[in-house]
């Protein structure tokens, strides 16, 4: 994704800041709205350069729709994984088989990689240890049998199918 024009990036920053202001004040009083708008305009002027490179293209309806659909999907995955880890903690024999596995991603943009790494880390049982280009190194609390193979290619395939691919189909659209 190339860099968008300055005006587009500035407007995008204003919109995001104003949305946060709306949620924090939770009021439709014209005075509050006006002041929030002024503050958003001022703060965005200082921060838009580091805030976004995509600009208004980030607000494409398809991206927003996928982002909204991603929230319940991700929350569900997180709750399921939480229960899984809870089971491992509470089980008397502590059934863990940890290891650092190697995954590959299809995402291209830096923001997308960041979002994927954060999603993986937020899902219990997996922590992103390092990202090197398209290679993810992930500490996994229970390495399943299909990822135990000695062969590198098959290992990467099995690990990626389990960890990165469920998130990628959403993040690919949201962040490119």
């Amino acid at each position: 994704m190339g860099e968008a024009s300055k005006i587009s990036r500035y407007l995008y920053t204003v919109i995001v800041l104003f949305l946060i202001w709306l949620l924090l004040t939770a009021s439709l009083d014209p005075q509050e709205l006006g002041f929030g708008l002024i503050l958003s305009l001022i703060v965005a002027a200082f921060t838009y350069e580091i805030f976004s490179t995509g600009g208004l293209a980030n607000l494409h309806p398809k991206r927003i729709a996928y982002a909204i659909a991603y929230v319940p999907y991700f929350l569900w995955a997180m709750i399921m994984a939480n229960l899984d880890v809870a089971y491992r903690v509470l089980h008397p024999r502590r059934p863990i088989r940890p290891g650092i596995v190697h995954c590959k991603t299809v995402l291209k943009s830096d923001v997308g990689k960041l979002a994927l790494a954060n999603s993986i880390t937020l899902t219990p049982g997996t922590i992103t240890l390092d990202v090197d280009d398209e290679n993810y190194f992930i500490h996994w609390i229970w390495v399943p049998d299909e990822a135990m193979t000695e062969e590198e290619g098959e290992h990467v395939k099995a690990a990626s199918a389990n960890i990165t691919q469920p998130f990628e189909k959403f993040l690919k659209v949201i962040f490119g």
Partner: peptide, 11 residues
Amino acid sequence: LWEGSVMDKYR
């Protein structure tokens, strides 16, 4: 890593 760890692809 714990001695029970099965692999270390990062190393």
